[in-house]
Design a protein around this nucleic acid. Structure first.
Lengths: 345, 345
DNA sequence: ACGATCTGTTGGACCGGTCCAACAGTCACG
DNA sequence: CGTGACTGTTGGACCGGTCCAACAGATCGT
């Protein structure tokens, strides 16, 4: 007895048998009643419920999963909880999963491969029934999980769909078009783009920018400066753009985080935003909405995307594989104080 | 068969019995070997390991918990994942828990009470052995959990300790002293404080500020302007401070988030930071370190606090209740670009 | 009056592990 | 050579649920 931790289960949590005894029925019936089966007599159901309440009975998810061969749990992989965009999505994922009576287990990616791997293993050990991943980098371990035919939905990426792979994303082409249209509407034509690097999401946004510029007949103004998704990346890309022979009057930056770096770069070069240069970000994180930042940005419906991810996954789990869908949502322009018409020269 | 979801356990995950059969031993021995028991012959251990690897065996955490009466899982309650301070702490919590071979289940507080409650229930249903909570607001449900004698550690708060309640925090009195000392060292004397509201953490920092000012003989300069922990709160408090009859030359704001609001307020009043006014925050979030923000702040060793929380909890779980400790860590001054000597008048 | 059907309930096998009592075999010691 | 201690292994009870086959009793049609 000594060697066993004091805080273990046997300590006395009431079990289904205790409830059965108290209500004077068999444990099977308690199980049925608690699951809401319609085969239980209303009278019996009430007395079982009463017994359970009085004992403070709490179902044991562990035992339930084992017996039922279902965990009613989905795993959520988040690339980086430090990035507010994922937390916003997570809000939606959790709310909807909860509504559909699924539990979630959230794990975070890590630069330490071993920890990331362990976290993913945890998911498998808890026998999650499905997986939601967000972030452009798909963790290596997730591939195994997916190929082991546990269905997954990728948020924000657009992979080739398979029966096991769903996707929820926003229309980045449309989003970038919104950003460019907004700047052109203000009177800008020298609009440069600080890219998000070489990952697929960044590529998409870059292509969208080019298309939109061409649509406006601004071919000769197209300029893509290589950047990335962090504020450092945005800073350096912007410095490069500002120091160019002919300075753009507006900058479209690949995401909010990098756009904040762009703000700093403009300040360092003694330029007023939006007086001397307008800056537009992408994502619509709360961060960008902070008073001292006030970044104009292309807002993705982050929470709604999370909701959609849960909805797709859970309905697939409950109803079996249907037509595999790709949910594509619409971004929205969020105009704040980092954009204005160009100074008349 | 039809009505059962296709993605259920029976699908074929190898079990301990499969491994036993393949290795030609009993399942008990496989269990022993996989737990690393020293009673297993080295030769046998190897062949069991080989069999497990070849089958791609993954232990079933569910079944293990049930049989062992231990889940080796701790619950982590985070008030708000949107606040980067908690994510930094979480990094430490996870890393250390993992090192000590514990799993974590992270749940997030929610403004929707029902969701918050459900998340806490989830923790109990998974039979977590202990709880780590962070955030000044202790969720109602957590009280139950704690009183049900599952030990808990509060990060960042200093409750009355009980055998079940541990605490990890920083020395806020010392932290505020650092901030005031820094400003005094630069030559400031008119140093005002925008408070964090009426919660216990904010109170502590306010007291620390008053003490430090008195220590420097600056009694007559003590000014506390009521604020809060959000950027809005910081904005309004700062506006009030700046519009006062005699304007302070420096501001100590209760946390980073609010200090960022203060930065915006200064900008709105046409004041240069740090030229016209110096601003110091508190927490040392990554946010404050962003290039375009560059906030001088009192940094808490957030990740280390997380590590300490896991360490305390797990050692208590493994070794039983020892002397109940309160871990108090030291904050550190992080000097950036929002502070400078006052303008000579 | 009798089987068929339906409603409500029950016992018990089962899930995949852990862990304990029991045991076979080896070795050292008196 | 018998005995006790130690090493390595095993069968089986057990954890707290789910779920299925079986069943008792009521209702109904013929």
């Amino acid at each position: 007895m000594e060697r066993r931790s004091r805080w273990t289960l046997p300590s006395g949590e009431p079990t289904i048998r205790d409830v059965a005894a108290k209500a004077g029925v068999s444990k099977s019936l308690v199980s049925l009643a608690l699951q809401g089966s319609s085969r239980v007599a209303p009278e019996t159901r009430r007395s079982i419920q009463r017994a359970a309440d009085e004992l403070g009975y709490r179902p044991n998810a562990i035992a339930r999963s084992l017996g039922a061969h279902r965990s009613r749990t989905i795993g959520v992989y988040v690339l980086d909880l430090h990035n507010p965009i994922y937390v916003d999505i997570l809000d939606g994922v959790q709310a909807e999963a909860h509504r559909l009576d699924y539990r979630t287990i959230v794990v975070m990616g890590s630069s330490d491969r071993r920890i990331e791997r362990a976290e993913l293993d945890k998911l498998m050990e808890f026998r999650v029934e499905g997986l939601i991943t967000m972030g452009h980098r798909l963790p290596v371990g997730a591939r195994d999980a997916i190929s082991d035919s546990c269905p997954a939905v990728l948020v924000g990426a657009e992979p080739r769909l398979t029966p096991h792979l769903l996707s929820v994303c926003t229309d980045d082409t449309r989003g970038t078009a919104l950003a460019v249209d907004h700047l052109v509407g203000l009177g800008h034509s020298a609009i440069a783009h600080v890219t998000g690097g070489t990952n697929s999401v960044a590529r998409k946004r870059e292509r969208g920018y080019v298309q939109a510029m061409e649509r406006h007949g601004l071919h000769e103004h197209i300029r893509c400066i290589p950047g990335g998704f962090t504020d450092e990346d945005g800073y350096h890309g912007t410095i490069e753009a500002l120091d160019a022979a002919v300075r753009p009057t507006a900058l479209f930056v690949a995401n909010d985080f990098a756009a904040i770096g762009a703000l700093a770069a403009a300040a360092d070069r003694g330029l007023d935003v939006p007086g001397d240069i307008s800056i537009v970000g992408y994502d619509g994180t709360r961060l960008s909405g902070l008073r001292s930042i006030g970044l104009t940005t292309v807002a993705q419906p982050l929470t709604d995307m999370g909701v959609a991810a849960s909805r797709e996954l859970c309905s697939r789990l409950d109803d079996g594989p249907g037509a595999t869908r790709r949910v594509r949502m619409s971004p929205d322009m969020m105009i704040r104080t980092s954009t204005a018409p160009p100074r008349k020269s």
